[in-house]
Each structure stands twice: as structure tokens, then as C-alpha cells.
């Protein structure tokens, strides 16, 4: 451990980047994975709306549907990830961030 870091710890000041790290809860990763997977499945289903049967050319209005679902997957993943903010930190996270 470096001199600067030791000094910061002993004086009660945490390094700013470490202080900002959020806590995590178990299950958040699984929820995020499931949300992303589900949204991608919805994107796949929506692509069937394409009258040509492909929806892969990105040149018609139909292509907006799978694209919107894919963007939604990022949003849903964010929802899944929010578990870490509202839940109880895991023992591992508590140990890592007990400062």
C-alpha cells in the first residue's frame, strides 16, 4: 500500500474514487442478465412483424421495433441493476467496502 493511500486512510479521508463505489446485492447480476435476455427475445419476436420476414435491412419502419426493444434491453438492464442500490449489501460487498 502506498504512502499517500496510507495517509488518506489514517486521516479518515477515503480516496474519492473508492468512496463512490456502490454496494452490491446477490441476484442483481442474474436479474440484469434475465432482463437483457428477455428484451432481446422481444426484439426477435418483433422482427417477425416485417412483411418480408427478415426485418434485417434497417431501411423500413419495422426495423424500429427490434431496435427499440434492444434499446429497451439496456433500460431493463438498468432496472435490474438498481437492485444493488435498494437491497442489502452482500457480505462480500460489506467486507470489501467496510471502511
Amino acid at each position: 500500500m502506498t504512502v499517500e493511500r496510507k495517509a488518506a486512510m489514517t486521516s479518515g479521508q477515503e480516496a474519492p474514487m473508492i468512496a463512490k463505489r456502490p454496494s452490491r446485492v446477490p441476484g442483481g447480476s442474474a436479474a440484469t442478465f434475465a432482463c437483457a435476455l428477455a428484451a432481446t427475445g422481444v426484439a426477435g419476436l418483433l422482427s417477425r412483424v416485417c412483411p418480408a420476414g427478415c426485418a434485417t435491412c434497417s431501411t423500413c419502419a419495422v426495423s424500429v421495433l427490434p431496435t427499440a426493444a434492444l434499446v429497451g434491453s439496456v433500460g431493463l438492464a438498468a432496472v435490474g441493476s438498481r437492485l444493488r442500490r435498494h437491497g442489502k449489501p452482500s457480505p462480500d460487498a460489506s467486507r470489501k467496502h467496510a471502511r
Binding site: G28, S29, A30, T32, F33, A34, C35, A36, L37, A38, A39, T40, G41, A43, G44, S47, L70, S73, V74, A77, A78, G80, S81, R84
Partner: peptide, 17 residues
């Protein structure tokens, strides 16, 4: 966002779609 599970969740969906 939890980036790693989001990324692999999408990738799994990409492969299964």
C-alpha cells in the same frame, strides 16, 4: 447498469433469437 451480465444477456439473446 451492471455491464457484464447485461452484455452477456444480450449476447445469449442474440444467439437464441
Amino acid at each position: 447498469v451492471r455491464i457484464r451480465p447485461s452484455r452477456y444477456g444480450f449476447f445469449a439473446g442474440f444467439l437464441l433469437a
